[in-house]
Write a protein that binds this DNA or RNA. Structure first.
Lengths: 222, 222
DNA sequence: AATATATTTTAGTCAAGACTAAATATTTTG
DNA sequence: CAAAATATTTAGTCTTGACTAAAATATATT
């Protein structure tokens, strides 16, 4: 089971994972455009992965691809690397959210399991990366996502902020000033159906937030 | 000039650099055994590097290889990456000297110039890696080595310890306990020509050290 | 100097993984 | 429901960087 997968194969698996999270199977074309590769190349690779010694994907001619359990494991390993790396680069080297991606994209394929363990431990085994994405666990399970966009809460509901999915420093600072940071407890007071503005209460403070913001703030209902 | 070199080519250049530091040219065989590759493969690659658009090596049939200025730049870039990474991994993730090499060997090929700058700055632009090797500067010059093995000092000479080139934790702890750490000022008192033992004085303390140790302690004469 | 030995080079293969062009399915639409 | 548009696959090519076997050249030994 411990085959050593090439960078290219890891990229295929990672992208198939991301395209099939919704339950659908991944199409040749969709994969090709994500991987910056021609569709014909995808067909070739996918056939190879399907007939690998422990098969990594499930594949039927014009039917798209799915990961096998082995394939999913391999994909989650790469995704874990990627997200841990993003978190680590941001925390230790002052990268911003938009700068880390390319760097992590390259490093994810070459770090050792030892390195993975060390950075995970150094950060206290974080649950999410800087973009708010869940980090697969060390035993390669994708944790359940128990958060929903704040925009989907109804008046009267309570929640705790889990993460903010935004990269604009300006917006982040704005929210931080309001106290809208991970961990904050909030209550939805009012909902204006016409323009989708929500009135939020935190402690004694009230704020009105538009959909452009409430759809980026993810909360755990409580 | 900004070609993007493959990992393989970077490895060739790095190893040619290391084999030619003494002024000699690198032989096909020597390179092959360092790179874990057959001599015939080396010949092929070396021919390719010699006829690259800006040539990276100088090469004449049975005469061995040398780096051109462009090739040397590329080699120093990789070596700088490697040594900065080793220092960084040791300092931030608690790797020991013997653990870092393999990890750095992989990372050196994929980190960005930005990453390089960030870790260099984070460490205060160190001069040497954890093995005591000099780190090429940001403008890709190899600094002059102003240190010599303690074993080559004569009685009456003074020096300051620059680094200790050893990886055994036991030896390092022993030397640390004696105060034989980078920065320490020492004086050579006596030299026993028969067994090459040196008597060293540091402050009011005297120690007798064998060649196996004095050849690993590098000092700057003063 | 002649031969033995070691090193290096040539020539031809191979596997990965991309590509193009052409053939074939599948969808969409009129 | 057939025609056109779109998506996918096949077949064959290319490049990279390894390999083996055999030929050529250097070096060393007697």
């Amino acid at each position: 089971m411990e085959q050593t997968l090439t960078n290219s194969i890891q990229d295929y698996l990672k992208n198939i994972y991301e395209l099939t999270e919704n339950g659908e199977s991944a199409s040749t074309n969709a994969l090709a455009s994500r991987l910056n590769v021609k569709p014909a190349s995808v067909t070739g690779m996918v056939q190879k992965l399907a007939s690998a010694k422990p098969a990594l994907v499930e594949y039927q001619k014009h039917q798209g691809v799915t990961l096998t359990d082995d394939g999913k494991k391999a994909a989650l390993e790469v995704i874990r690397h990627h997200r841990l790396l993003e978190a680590w680069l941001v925390q230790t080297l002052g990268y911003t959210w938009d700068e880390v991606h390319a760097e992590a994209e390259k490093l994810e394929h070459v770090i050792s399991e030892d390195f993975e363990r060390r950075i995970a431990a150094a950060m206290g085994h974080p649950l999410r990366d800087p973009h708010g994405e869940l980090i697969p666990t060390a035993d390669l399970q994708m944790p359940l996502d128990d958060s929903t966009p704040l925009s989907s809460l109804r008046p009267g509901q309570f929640g705790k902020i889990e993460y903010v999915k935004a990269s604009e420093a300006e917006l982040l600072r704005y929210l931080e000033n309001l106290g809208l940071i991970p961990g904050a407890d909030i209550e939805v007071k009012d909902h204006s159906p016409f323009d989708h503005n929500l009135t939020i209460k935190m402690g004694r403070k009230s704020v009105v937030l538009g959909l452009n913001i409430t759809s980026k703030i993810y909360v755990k209902e409580s």
